[in-house]
Design a protein around this nucleic acid. Structure first.
Lengths: 243, 243
DNA sequence: GCCGCATGCAATGTATACATTTTGCACCAC
DNA sequence: GTGGTGCAAAATGTATACATTGCATGCGGC
């Protein structure tokens, strides 16, 4: 039985299309036609369809009456997606606190928070952005699982897979590190508080903290927009659309 | 250009497979093989794949390393899905209140609540269950849109499409109407309160009420389980698995 | 001039042949 | 007995030919 999830041509089509959508080459509202895409990628229509189907599942495309259309994201949608992530993470945190979190996961997330601290240890101007970004993603991934609910974790993963709703989408990077270090400090303090609230089984507090944490991401987004600074990551085009 | 969304063979496969999953003929964990399904449905593998892809999008199937597997739902998952619906509806209600709901939608949902009242007018034992169920679905559908957020509405629709998370899944039906009339009365009172809170722009209250409303659905579910009464609707098998 | 139908084109739906790959099973070596 | 390796078969990945369908365009009648 071959891999149904990641065949070579399908995977390439998936990767290429995703990239072209995220970098703005395929703008929102664009209708995707099988034949031209197949010719462009030098493959047959079949893997193109398969790839488009998966991108619809990811939320980057939507099915039209016929075929697929690139989903349109405006500033409102980006803000709502961040809000939604906050709500879902709040729910995950609350349920984890109420039901009692898996001890192994709880110690794992505690360790992640400690490792996040270490990213600042190199010195004030020597923050390890790459490590921070990766560990931050780990934190949110473990948080999604902490409620012990497949349903919650699944939907949270879905929402976080939208690139502009990802926990690291608008993180202050090296360029901003000096002026916006306080944002990272705040976020890290929130990480600690969320884990503490879950450990102390204070559900309501854990939920409120997780929501507030997402609002930090929103403030980072607003900073990016205010500065009209183009992003470097996969969210580049979104930031432009948003602008 | 033909219809990409609802071709005959694909649609038939979609309908048949969905039904066989929901009625338990295809149990959770079952691996779906293209060739046997194509033979069973007397069509080729292509529309079978298309249908399975859409069922994965609906959340009834999940992609395995190879092919698709029927998603497993236990009692925990059903409860979590209802909780999730409550959280999302709470968010929709809160945002609608905070941002100001679309007046047209607000009057529409107000009217739906009034029409729900009329379902009881026929007399104590003459409640129109069909109408109530339909109007109840309408209420929740409009509520999903009331926040004016495509992102929220989309995710809410996704969750509600899971048959056991639908607002009408465990509604007391004719059989229970006498003994469980109070459940419908409570739900209807909550409908009114939610709309009122949104109209009065009390976000936190609207959110809390919507969450509480979902817990009514959870109590209905628990009643069904406690009575070990098999359901008649599309959720029949789920209720059995749950049991 | 306008309405309506027919026709052609374009795009996706469907079927099927073939390629690729995974996986289960058996056999052999250790 | 256990583990690994290889082979075979089954299942999906891929390509492509053909069917179907919806839309646009143009012509003809009214």
């Amino acid at each position: 039985m071959p891999e149904a999830t990641g065949s070579s041509h399908t995977m390439r089509a998936l990767t290429e299309l995703r990239q072209r959508i995220l970098n703005g080459e395929l703008q929102g509202g664009t209708r995707l036609l099988e034949v031209p895409l197949a010719e462009m990628l030098q493959i047959s229509r079949t893997p193109v369809r398969e790839a488009m189907s998966r991108l619809a599942e990811e939320g980057l495309l939507e099915r039209a009456r016929s075929g697929f259309v690139v989903r349109t994201f405006g500033l409102d949608d980006v803000i709502d997606a961040i809000e939604l992530r906050g709500v879902l993470e709040g729910t995950a945190a609350r349920l984890a606190a109420e039901r009692g979190a898996n001890p192994e996961l709880l110690s794992r997330i505690t360790r992640i928070v400690a490792e996040l601290d270490e990213c600042f240890d190199g010195g004030p101007g020597d923050t390890d952005f790459e490590s921070y970004s990766r560990l931050n993603a780990d934190f949110h991934h473990v948080l999604a699982q902490l409620a012990g609910s497949k349903v919650i974790a699944r939907e949270l993963d879905r929402v976080m897979r939208l690139p502009f709703a990802s926990p690291s989408a608008f993180l202050p990077d090296k360029v901003d590190m000096v002026s916006r270090r306080h944002s990272l400090d705040l976020a890290q303090a929130q990480h600690r508080e969320i884990v503490a609230a879950i450990g102390e089984r204070e559900g309501a507090r854990a939920e409120a903290l997780a929501r507030e944490h997402a609002r930090t991401a929103r403030r980072d987004l607003e900073y990016v927009i205010a500065r009209k600074r183009s992003l470097t990551g996969p969210v580049a085009s979104i930031a432009l659309i948003v602008d």
